[in-house]
Write a protein that binds this DNA or RNA. Sequence first.
DNA 1: GGATAAGTGGAGACCCCCGTCCGGTTGCAC
DNA 2: GTGCAACCGGACGGGGGTCTCCACTTATCC
Lengths: 227, 227
Amino acid sequence: MAAEDSRMAPGRAAPAAGPGLRADARHNRNRILEVAAELLAERGIDVPMAAIARNAGVGVATLYRRFPTRQDLLREVFADGFAACEAAIDDALADSGPDPWDAFRTAVEQVCAVQAGDRGFNAAFVAAYFQEFGVGGELDRVMRGLAELTRRAKDAGRLRADFAPEDFTLLVMANSGISARSPEAARAASRRLVAYLLDAFRADRTAPSEPLPPPAPLDLYDALRLR
Amino acid sequence: MAAEDSRMAPGRAAPAAGPGLRADARHNRNRILEVAAELLAERGIDVPMAAIARNAGVGVATLYRRFPTRQDLLREVFADGFAACEAAIDDALADSGPDPWDAFRTAVEQVCAVQAGDRGFNAAFVAAYFQEFGVGGELDRVMRGLAELTRRAKDAGRLRADFAPEDFTLLVMANSGISARSPEAARAASRRLVAYLLDAFRADRTAPSEPLPPPAPLDLYDALRLR
DNA sequence: GGATAAGTGGAGACCCCCGTCCGGTTGCAC
DNA sequence: GTGCAACCGGACGGGGGTCTCCACTTATCC
């Protein structure tokens, strides 16, 4: 169920690419992608195909005609997120500022922000990590980029020496655990978590650290009426 | 679906408590709990009732006779985990050593270790946080204990001043994101994550920090063949 | 404006899961 | 050993998910 994902030849099972469609069909396709992105971001990766179809104002059959399998739809919807991550990495790699730590920090912050803002993409991102999603390539580039940024930051003595490549995995997974009722709360919580971790990753612990982003109410602490 | 969970009177829907059962029934009940704990820990909270029954060598009906609803089974299976968390907190609260930071750190480490070692309990723990699980009481005590430990550590100037109560939520959720193919890998990864975060929570950043637990191979980094 | 291929949506086949029903089985007291 | 209440497990109803089939509609080309 995860092996033969590499048949990319547009021969037969091609998901009916963008143009070449009739005007109404193209409109429906766009609407589906739009609605799917929204629902997946808010409700997570388990939102049913029927719900997407209903919200897009089309029948299930139309949905499946454009995207033969659920996986195809997800891949297309989440492509933007993966692209955003790649862009963040590329920017950081191109950053030729005096301090490699800045590039490292910014890249980590941006990737984690993309991940935290979208429940569905979050799941896809982690699944891709575990090779359970047909996107390997993009993630590979992201990870290689992070590895290079790591090297630079370490060489400059700004990243602690015992930082391991596996720690990116740790970061991604920890960040994936953040979710809240509202995407805004999740994003805020993720920002604070990432700030804490970046603070722990720094080599020069004596230097004052930047102020933390404020804690987001996680919709639950109040409920626990603890304070 | 979450309101009337307080009917605890053993009048009618009582889940047929321990003794008083026929010998074979009691044996089956224990076997079910044993198998359920194991499967839930390894495969996560979504393991089907039928799988538990099959592995326990009983029919589904027997399972449902002992535990009228899935929730009842989960509650009983995870009771141990919640108890372990409470015990860790109580120990830490009773610790009258010279440095409140030790108690704080140990409590956090132990609770996170319990959480990380069991995929099912992990989910239950987070769900309990969100009040989506009928166990509120235990968690409440845990959180109140952590709040007290926080106060002591802050008063002693060992915990950074901008540490917020919400940061426990952050910690729990971040830790919940850690999962790997094997429970051992997950536990190791969690240890390292918690060490990083505790390092970030400390007030005195100039003091040398303890060495990090070694990174666990997360069964995926190799696959990404990055190094 | 009419022919036609492309497009459409609802019904339903198939599968998996939770929880129940009921006829057969078995531990246990006597 | 025997009787019976307790116990057992497979079959089944209900619900929800993915994906397919097919009779009907509509954009588009001339």
